[in-house]
Simulated assay, not measured.
Amino acid sequence: MATEKGKVLQQMNEAFVHGDFDNVLEHVTDDIQWTQVGGPFVKGKEAFREACREMGWHGPDTTLTIHSIITHGLTAALEGVVEMIDKNGGKKTYAFCDTYRFNTFKNGKIKEIRSYVIRIKK
């Protein structure tokens, strides 16, 4: 049975791949910190929104497969695969794992995300 935080993370990631960033932003604090390992560091809600847009993982041809969601206290992790069609019509596949830290135990918002992403070449 999925926890409330697990449901929020699933909903948020589904909204992300569909480009529904208003929905994503409902679940983060104003001072959100996003570390993309090997990539940029983002701080603040508006910078987070812009970074999400620039990432390009959203669109009608993007699919998300979530393999697991683990929640415990103020922390959580979600791992899965995103498949997308790039602007040149080529298919790209990425495996990812995000770790999360919430600001409160119950009904909290996400204050930190750390993302690990690997492109899978088939």
Rank of each mutant, 00 (worst) to 15 (best):
L9K: 02
R101A: 05
S115T: 10
N107F: 11
V117K: 14
G56F: 03
D22F: 06
G38M: 14
T29M: 07
H18S: 12
S68I: 10
K45N: 06
R101E: 07
L25H: 12
L64Q: 04
M1D: 09
V81A: 04
T71Y: 04
G80Y: 08
S68L: 08
D30I: 05
G6N: 05
T99E: 02
T104A: 07
G6W: 00
E46F: 09
E50I: 14
G59N: 05
K7Y: 01
G80D: 02
T29L: 14
Y116H: 15
T63K: 12
Q11R: 14
D31H: 08
R49H: 10
R114M: 13
K43R: 09
K122G: 09
K45L: 11
K87A: 12
A76D: 01
K87L: 03
K111T: 04
H58F: 10
E54H: 12
F105P: 10
A2M: 11
L74W: 01
I69W: 00
D22M: 12
E54W: 02
K106C: 13
L9P: 00
T3Y: 03
V17S: 11
N13E: 12
I32S: 09
F41T: 14
I85D: 02
Q10N: 15
D86K: 06
T3M: 08
G19N: 07
D20H: 14
I113L: 11
L64D: 01
T35E: 03
K45H: 07
F16E: 08
H18W: 06
K106T: 10
T3A: 08
K87N: 09
G56N: 09
K45G: 03
F102V: 00
A95N: 10
K43Q: 10
Y94I: 02
E83A: 06
G59E: 09
G6C: 06
V37Y: 14
G89C: 04
D61F: 13
T104V: 07
I120M: 06
T104Y: 05
F48E: 06
G56K: 13
R49P: 01
Q10C: 07
T75N: 09
A2G: 01
E79K: 03
H72Q: 11
F21Y: 14
K7E: 03
I113V: 07
K43S: 03
I120N: 09
V117F: 11
V8D: 00
G44R: 04
S115L: 10
T75H: 11
N13D: 10
T63Y: 05
T75S: 14
P60T: 10
A2H: 08
T93N: 02
H58V: 01
N103V: 01
E83L: 08
D61T: 13
Y100T: 00
C52P: 01
N103G: 05
D31N: 15
E14T: 15
A51M: 06
K91L: 02
V8A: 06
A77T: 03
A95P: 00
V17H: 11
I110K: 00
T75R: 09
S115V: 05
S115W: 04
Q10R: 15
D20R: 14
F48T: 02
H18N: 09
E83Q: 09
A77Y: 01
A77G: 06
C97V: 03
N107P: 05
H27Q: 12
Y116A: 13
R119W: 08
K91Y: 02
C97D: 03
M1V: 05
T3F: 13
V117T: 11
V37F: 13
I69E: 00
G89M: 07
D86S: 12
W57F: 11
T65Q: 08
Q33W: 08
Y94V: 04
G73W: 04
T71F: 01
